[in-house]
């Protein structure tokens, strides 16, 4: 188990005849997703657009996205993992425990029909949201769904993709990977990257009080993080770089207003399928870009004596 069987969004546009959204509400959270990439566009191999596609929504309640769905499957809260496990058995025609099926809140007929549709699709895709990845079971839920997608490739073509959000979070993830080898939760304190989510991820570091300063870039943790983490940001020098004054700015020691990337500052944003898009600003800003502020901070810090010796101490040759 592990890995990710995925594709770029154009593949979905051109080929997907079965689209499953799982634990997400794209109609309200990713409003252009239906029209640009998944449901509506007329693709190379789905020339009639919406008419050639089937959309299934799996969620714990009937959200606005359910209106766009051909089939809505209401799973009982926190039972996604069980439902996926049943589906993994059904696609391989294995017997399933009826008690386990009952726990999901869906009938065996509904699940069997779902499994059949998954296998019969020419090109199927799972788009999964935080309703799957951030509820009970967390990354195990995502792993189960990714495995289901991988296993479906024994019967047909199937892919899965997380519905990333929050601006350029994918870009941050991509760059962390090429500079440190890991996507997030990286500790550089020893001079080389170490990875341990739960230990080195932001909230955990803040709650334990492990940091003596905080630099916040394009995020508003003061509005979203747990109170003990916010308390620590109040205690230590916190610097915020943001085009507007945020909740975090109000508890920060320093707020630096920067230009808005994409509107008045150039850059690159990575789409949820990790395709980089250049940002071409139409306006000019009186404020510096994030990059310029960071560079100036870096230059000022570089004037201080180095933390590490210029070269490693000589090891005597044998």
């Amino acid at each position: 188990m592990g890995g990710k069987v995925s594709c770029t969004l154009g593949e979905v546009k051109n080929r997907a005849d079965l689209i499953v959204y799982w634990g997400g509400n794209p109609a309200e959270c990713h409003p252009r997703h239906f029209t640009k990439y998944s449901l509506m566009p007329k693709g190379r191999f789905v020339p009639n657009g919406r008419k050639d596609r089937t959309m299934i929504l799996v969620d714990i309640r009937e959200t606005a996205s359910a209106k766009a769905a051909d089939i809505f499957l209401q799973v009982r809260p926190a039972k996604d993992f069980e439902m996926i496990t049943v589906l993994r058995a059904l696609i391989k025609e294995q017997p399933v425990d009826t008690k386990l099926v009952a726990e999901t809140g869906l009938t065996l007929e509904e699940l069997t029909d779902f499994a059949q549709r998954l296998k019969k699709a020419k090109f199927g895709v799972f788009f999964f949201g935080m309703g799957l990845s951030m509820t009970r079971g967390k990354h195990m839920n995502s792993a189960a769904l990714l495995t289901l997608a991988a296993e479906l490739n024994a019967f047909t073509k199937f892919v899965a993709m997380p519905m990333r959000g929050h601006g350029n979070v994918t870009g941050g993830d991509v760059i962390m990977r090429w500079t440190t080898g890991y996507p997030f939760g990286v500790n550089l304190a020893r001079g080389y990257p170490r990875f341990n989510p739960g230990e080195y991820s932001t909230i955990d570091l803040l709650i334990r009080g492990d940091t003596d300063a905080v630099l916040v870039l394009g995020a508003d943790p003061g509005a979203t993080m747990p109170q003990p983490a916010i308390d620590h940001m109040v205690r230590v020098p916190t610097i915020v770089l943001d085009p507007k004054v945020t909740h975090t700015s109000k508890i920060a020691r320093v707020h630096i207003t920067t230009a808005v990337t994409g509107i008045s500052a150039p850059g690159t944003a990575y789409r949820m399928d990790e395709i980089p898009l250049p940002l071409k600003p139409p306006l000019k800003s009186p404020y510096p870009t994030d990059e310029e502020v960071i560079r100036r901070i870096y230059q000022a810090v570089a004037k201080k004596p180095p933390l590490m010796p210029p070269v490693r101490p000589k090891v005597p040759r044998v």
């Binding site: 592990g2 890995g3 990710k4 993830d173 990977r177 090429w178 500079t179 440190t180 080898g181 890991y182 996507p183 550089l188 020893r190 001079g191 080389y192 990257p193 990875f195 180095p306 590490m308 010796p309 210029p310 070269v311 490693r312």
Partner: peptide, 23 residues
């Protein structure tokens, strides 16, 4: 890179110096 963190754990670390970046 993202797929094999368990292998990175055993790979040689490059400690940052004034000349060289960590990785």
């Amino acid at each position: 890179r993202a797929m094999i963190p368990e292998d990175h754990l055993h790979s040689e670390p490059f400690v940052r110096t004034a000349i060289r970046r960590g990785g």
